[in-house]
Design a protein around this nucleic acid. Structure first.
Lengths: 143, 143
DNA sequence: CTGCTTGCAAATAGTTTGCACGTTC
DNA sequence: GAACGTGCAAACTATTTGCAAGCAG
């Protein structure tokens, strides 16, 4: 998804195209598939727009982009929420140590958790809340 | 685990036994197996001690009890952290809607996640971070 | 020129920390 | 009475909100 495609999608939804929104779209497009925090998005947008953009504007822009279905947000545990363009659905493994977010095929996770969760009548929001743990690199580093 | 057992365990670790610590132990013992937030623990302790106890004292007491291995804390997502006595290890399913925390046998979850996570070199902290989703009751209520 | 957007500042929730005073051993 | 623990207030992180001023259409 290019920055222009994101901007056009917003325009098609009747949103006004402002410098801030254009910059946030550009920051998203700059890192396809990446998991960005609001702070990442802000700094990327500020760099690209060569001007300061308020955090609240970034959050409000995220809200719009999400409502329109262009991006999704994921809770990674430990208080951080990340955002990414919503192209292919996937689950997230979030490393508690380095903060990395690893993508996993959504069906694989759902399939594995289904039996456990459904035995308790529970439906896991596996796309929306990441699984927290440690990645291979951090586990090796700990030794 | 009774309140006295908790207190004795603290004493054995060389901790000083204060009114606040005794009250927090009593609040924990009062609800065996329950998942309590710092606020729950505080109000329980204040009621039992018939005097006010500062939140920071509750957090510091939780820290001591945890260091000694008497309790564990679990991140349920959505910003809340709960605490429970560490008798039998179990995984947690946390309902995003009503906040309920459901216990699940630890091995069942670990076994289910193992194949998915290890394919990516990832080790899920399945005891420490709950799986977030919706419980049966809340899903029915939504219909 | 209308009203959606922005920036600023202040509020929020949950938790942590610095510090001087009070307690426990 | 020395060291540890407590209460208070302030700091913190991530996010949200009210409001007046600023732009897009």
């Amino acid at each position: 998804m290019t920055a222009d495609e994101l901007v056009e999608a917003l325009r098609a939804e009747g949103c006004r195209i402002t410098i801030a929104r254009r910059a946030v779209c550009a920051a998203l497009a700059e890192r396809p598939g990446a998991h960005l925090t609001a702070a990442d998005l802000r700094s990327g947008a500020e760099r690209l727009a060569k001007r300061s953009i308020d955090v609240s504007t970034v959050y409000r822009t995220i809200e719009v982009l999400e409502r329109v279905g262009l991006i999704d947000h994921v809770h990674t545990g430990q208080g951080v929420t990340v955002v990414h363009t919503s192209e292919r659905p996937h689950h997230h493994l979030s490393c508690r140590v380095c903060g990395a977010v690893i993508d996993v095929d959504a069906d694989a996770v759902r399939g594995a958790l289904e039996p456990v969760a459904s035995a308790h009548g529970f439906a896991a929001d596996s796309l929306h809340f990441a699984l927290v743990g440690t990645c291979a690199a951090c586990r090796e580093a700990a030794v």
